[in-house]
């Protein structure tokens, strides 16, 4: 779980170019981290690649915060 959280946060930092400290569990990609809709598409792709999973579009639409991403990936890998 913590491993997943760390890897998720690392991807967010790299792709959005934000400081590590801002990437808290509750941070919203769009409202808090400056992402636009295309950035979030790319983030989901990066998660898929990193964790070797597929995130369907309807699930991807619900991944709005860092915690949403961690929870979804954990459920897939659990």
């Amino acid at each position: 779980m913590s491993d997943i959280a760390e890897r998720v946060k690392k991807i967010v930092v790299e792709h959005l170019g934000v400081e590590e400290g801002k990437v808290t569990d509750t941070a919203s990609f769009i409202d808090d981290l400056g992402a636009d809709s295309l950035d979030t598409v790319e983030l989901v792709m990066a998660f898929e690649e990193e964790f070797g999973i597929e995130i369907p579009d309807d699930a991807a639409e619900k991944i709005l915060t860092v915690k949403d991403a961690i929870d979804f990936i954990s459920s897939k890998q659990g």
């Binding site: 295309l38 598409v41 790319e42 792709m45 898929e48 690649e49 597929e54």
Partner: peptide, 10 residues
């Protein structure tokens, strides 16, 4: 196609 960047066209 799932690996194509959303930034490709722009």
């Amino acid at each position: 196609p799932r690996r194509i960047s959303p930034f490709f066209i722009p």
